[in-house]
């Protein structure tokens, strides 16, 4: 997959005519944590990319570009036809505060979010978790990617370091492996089903 290419992808992979409902899960996490890899591992289409120019509401937050007032944010996504009538979309987006306006629209109506964590740079995920907890009500599960040089922390230590609620799922994953990636999605949807809102609402 050549993510740097700006060539248009070849269109044509329509959904089956029976599909009449779509749902989405967000895949968020710091730069380079493996969002696109996980999406690509489970998607039935080659991951697609769109870009959005956004105005950064918080000028000066990015010390590298103090005078920039617009920036381009890429969103990678894939799709899984999970039943004959439901398509699940996976939207990968950086979750930092300065992109909030963009991904708050994405979070609206989502089943939940996978928060991908690289234990070599744990602190990079704090901001994403803060945004999710403070500014959305969507369920999330934490996915710990294992890189060859990742420190070998037990998951409970990572949970403590991230200050997660006891009920928030945390799982290890190899984002390149389809079954491993599918398991993270199952974990998230199972967790979403325990949310109080789902005990009574039936859409």
């Amino acid at each position: 997959m050549d993510s740097a290419s700006s060539d248009r992808p070849v269109p044509g992979q329509h959904l089956a005519p029976t599909v009449a409902r779509s749902v989405k899960i967000l895949v968020v996490g710091a730069f380079g944590v493996g969002k696109t890899t996980l999406i690509g591992a489970v998607s039935e289409i080659d991951p697609l990319r769109t870009e959005e120019r956004i105005t950064t509401a918080s000028v000066g937050i990015d010390p590298g570009q103090p005078n920039k007032d617009t920036t381009t944010v890429a969103m990678d996504f894939g799709r899984i036809t999970v039943t004959e009538d439901i398509a699940l979309y996976l939207f990968g987006t950086p979750g930092q505060r300065r992109f909030w306006d963009l991904w708050s629209g994405l979070a609206d109506g989502a089943v939940g979010a996978l928060v991908m964590i690289d234990t070599r740079h744990l602190e990079d995920s704090f901001e994403v978790l803060d945004q999710l907890e403070l500014r959305t009500r969507i369920p999330f599960a934490v996915v710990v990617n294992q890189f060859p040089d990742s420190p070998d922390y037990p998951l409970e230590r990572v949970r403590a370091a991230l200050d997660l609620l006891p009920e928030t799922p945390i799982v290890e994953c190899d984002a390149r492996d389809r079954q491993s990636a599918v398991l993270t999605l199952i974990t998230l949807v199972e967790h979403a089903m325990t949310f109080p809102v789902f005990q009574k609402v039936n859409a």
Binding site: V19, A20, R21, S22, V23, V42, I80, T81, V82, T83, I86, L88, D108, G109, V111, R178, V182, L185, I186, V189, E190, A192, M193, V197, F198, Q199, V201, N202, A203
Partner: peptide, 25 residues
């Protein structure tokens, strides 16, 4: 095509269908 309101969260019946589908992957 999608026959639901954008702001309405997927209900438990939908989540169950998604889970079933994911478990078959």
């Amino acid at each position: 095509r999608s026959n639901h309101q954008a702001h309405v969260l997927p209900g438990k019946d939908i989540l169950e269908k998604i889970l079933d589908g994911l478990r078959k992957l």
